[in-house]
Design a protein around this nucleic acid. Sequence first.
DNA 1: CTTGATGCAAAAACTTTGCAGGTCA
DNA 2: TGACCTGCAAAGTTTTTGCATCAAG
Lengths: 128, 128
Amino acid sequence: MTATRSTRQRDVITRIMQAAQGPLAVADVHDRARSDLPGLGIATVYRTLKLLTDQGRIHPVTLDGETLYETSGQGHHHHFSCQDCGRVFTLHTCPVALPSGTVYPGGFIVRAHEVTLYGQCPDCAARV
Amino acid sequence: MTATRSTRQRDVITRIMQAAQGPLAVADVHDRARSDLPGLGIATVYRTLKLLTDQGRIHPVTLDGETLYETSGQGHHHHFSCQDCGRVFTLHTCPVALPSGTVYPGGFIVRAHEVTLYGQCPDCAARV
DNA sequence: CTTGATGCAAAAACTTTGCAGGTCA
DNA sequence: TGACCTGCAAAGTTTTTGCATCAAG
């Protein structure tokens, strides 16, 4: 019987993922976690993110070639990538109406969709 | 003065990109090109794709963590990724209405957007 | 001929894996 | 205490770079 233990490293990483306002890169998680755990190894971050992914608690999203992780269960949502500061935000409003099963021009049967918006986030807009 | 030469390798790779029906991975380009140029090195493929990208003739798109390249100047379009066969198609119909400058809920100023649809392509639907 | 381009191999960047020692239950 | 977990380092992957040689003009 295998068990899955609660450790200081896993707790910290899990908390970071839950507190995030948008998806995070592996390096982001590592950096933030080291505030609490200076000696944390990058391998543990990779292993823990993989564990949480296998548990379905988080999942990866790819943006501009970078693999980021975000918590699951946020419901249908999309992302906004700020072209000024590079941060990625989660959007809870969906700009498309494509129910699963919709047949798209060309005969493509749509089961899901992903949208990413690019532009300027409120912080960067205010900084002008 | 720097020059940029026309070579057999570049011609072949350029032709492959122009003939593609959707974005291609580096390995796809390499495989296809080796039909004509058996000795083609992968480094040349990377260098040529980078060159064409710098020239604005092609550009990268990321899908499911993979970096693919497609020709530029196709106008506004999106992608359809078939969950059965894995191929990526180019769609010329856009499902969202977000003119540049639109302010999205939350105060995000939208400059551009990307949409990827997932489902079953016509070929796979017909194969059932 | 001159200089840019290619192929090979080494290097760099990013992930995963093996191990010995540390920690949770 | 036993089994799981961690950090470190080695091993994979993928992409970039250095170099001697080749070839476009």
